[in-house]
Design a protein around this nucleic acid. Structure first.
Length: 550
DNA sequence: CTCAATCGCCAC
DNA sequence: AAACGTGGCGATTGAG
């Protein structure tokens, strides 16, 4: 008997079905044991939505190595310029284009069906449509790699959600009490916040202001003689007035309370784990999003509550200067690739004579990737363009494509969306006979804004592809280290933010994990850019608390 | 009451 | 120092 290569799973009217290697569909009685059994042959599981199937399997102790997520891949294939001519890309929207349902931790019966009707379309047929689209594309291997990376990302997201980030509720509580004061009764302010507010009011001659209302605050500040146009902290910081210090302090405390205070703790942390709902492909560029708990913006302030289990540690790794390295690789600019071969790319740019200081190298590169035109970044760009004409030309081309309303592609073929109809209308209006100067200016502003988007899309999107390849490599290497154990009982991923990962592992495995994280980064670079690409160094730290990582 | 827009802050 | 990309989220505010 040969090993199965693909198994398509489906469920309809309360029954599960499996179709093995394009063969006839058969009914599956016990899904978890069927999958566990077949997994020995390492098939690629094909299903409509990883975030529906996989949490249920994980809850039953079943992990799979490979999958093909039809919903995520549909999104990519529909939009990619590499598959633009396919039947799939030209077909009208259908149920396969719908957004996923939020990932809910399974409760009660693990394979209960939702009340909402599911798309009745046949996943076998959809899989065939997608294979046809890939086969007919300009570069099938490139698209295949993207779909595989996106799909394994979906597996990893579910595994991250399953494992959760270790969270010390007690430590978090202490931290809040230290900074804010004891937890007040509902509707009250914690002591330190109230005192800060009293100081603010005193500095404003006793004005009865609600500091949480920007409108009210702005009015009171202006009445107190402060010439400010908003209440944002960077603008306030430019002024000298006795109210500024208590106001900024109040804002700092209020932010902590509302974003990561006691309510947050009760809502998002269960059984010593923070479970972010990671959403692969949740951002147009291919970056992940999260829905709930603000996991991608965990303030440095509260990372002290992220503490490893007894006998365990975190190995925290982040890719150094990822986006500028990605730009070097994408553009094939040999001078910039040489700079990106060094551990500190910005120092290498200074050494090449392009700019004077490391800070200038950084500001200039960020400006090139984000489309900065004013201030320092605008002044530095011509110098970088002289030293690295291909690299800067690459992002300038992407920007011009966007300004024309065109589409750009990442390394693996993920493609930017078109501007909306209002955008095109404003461009048409601006070039029509009755165009007003204001209309022309507005259209130009919008065109430039879309150019900044496409400029950034190629870099951010390719960085996201690199990160997926890195994650996939890490997952595979950690599995190998673990042998046959269940993944959460040995080194496993617990957190991911764009270019940074956290692995939770027994303390004695940390050196091995550190090595694997570095090697997986190099491997990801070779996979995307071959041997001539830049290096992808990672900063690694082994710590008991996430706060100690940086 | 609900809903959407806006402000402001956090992350990479 | 300040304006230049991708987002999530909470509080306020105003419309229905």
């Amino acid at each position: 008997m040969t090993a199965a290569s693909t198994i398509v799973l489906d469920h309809r009217s309360g029954t599960f079905f499996a179709s093995i290697d394009d063969g006839r569909e058969r009914e599956v009685r016990d899904l978890a044991s069927f999958v566990a059994d077949r997994e020995r042959e390492r098939p690629r599981w094909v299903w409509d939505d990883t975030s529906w199937w996989y949490p249920r399997l994980l809850a039953e102790g079943v992990r799979v190595e490979r999958c093909f997520d039809l919903r995520l891949c549909r999104t990519i294939l529909r939009r990619s310029l590499l598959t633009a001519e396919s039947e799939l890309a030209r077909a009208p929207l259908d149920g396969w284009d719908n957004a996923r349902a939020p990932e809910v931790p399974p409760s009660g019966a693990l394979f209960e069906f939702e009340a909402a009707p599911r798309e009745p379309d046949d996943p076998v047929a959809e899989f065939r449509r997608q294979r046809t689209a890939v086969a007919g594309s300009a570069e099938p291997p490139r698209v295949d790699l993207l779909l595989a990376a996106e799909s394994v990302g979906a597996l990893i997201a579910s595994e991250l959600n399953h494992a959760g980030l270790p969270w010390d509720v007690e430590r978090h509580g202490e931290l809040l009490t230290e900074v804010l004061g004891a937890r007040p009764s509902p509707g009250q302010r914690p002591l330190h916040m109230q005192r800060t507010l009293d100081r603010l009011r005193a500095a404003l001659d006793g004005a009865e202001v609600n500091p949480d209302s920007p409108v009210e605050l702005l009015r009171v500040l202006r009445r107190a003689g402060l010439d400010v146009s908003s209440t944002s902290k960077w603008e306030l910081a430019e002024h000298d007035h006795p109210a500024i210090e208590p106001l900024l302090e109040y804002k700092r405390l209020a932010r902590l309370l509302s974003a990561n205070g006691w309510n947050w703790l009760e809502t998002w942390v269960r059984d010593g784990r923070f479970r972010a709902d990671f959403v692969p492909g949740g951002v147009v560029t291919g970056r992940w999003a999260t829905s709930g708990g603000g996991a991608l913006q965990l303030p440095k302030q509260i990372r002290g509550a992220v503490i490893a289990d007894p006998g365990w540690v975190f190995v925290v790794a982040d890719a150094s200067q990822l986006e500028p390295r990605i730009l070097a690789a994408l553009s094939g600019d040999r001078s910039m690739i040489a700079a990106a071969g060094e551990t500190d790319m910005y120092n290498a740019i200074v050494a090449s004579g392009a700019v004077d200081t490391r800070e200038h190298a950084k500001i200039g590169m960020l400006g090139a990737m984000y489309g900065g035109t004013t201030g320092q970044s605008g002044r530095l760009l011509p110098r970088l363009a002289r030293a690295y004409p291909r690299a800067i030309g690459f992002v300038e081309d992407a920007a011009r494509t966007g300004e024309r309303g065109g589409q750009v592609m990442t390394r693996l073929g993920r493609t930017s969306p078109l501007p909306d109809t209002a955008w095109f209308q404003s461009q048409r209006d601006a070039s029509s006979e009755g165009a007003t100067p204001a209309g022309v200016a507005a259209a130009r502003t919008r065109a430039r804004a879309f150019g900044r988007f496409t400029r950034n899309f190629v870099v951010q999107g390719t960085a996201a592809e690199w990160a997926l390849c890195w994650l996939a490599g890490i997952r595979q290497r950690l599995s190998a280290l673990a042998g046959h154990g269940w993944f959460t009982t040995s080194a496993h991923l617990v957190f991911f933010v764009h270019d940074e990962v956290v692995v939770h592992c027994p303390i004695e495995h940390a050196p091995d994990v550190e090595r694997e994280l570095r090697e997986a980064a190099s491997a990801a670079g070779r996979l995307l850019f071959g041997d001539a690409g830049p290096s992808f160094p990672v900063t690694v730290a082994t710590v008991r608390s996430y706060a100690d990582a940086k």
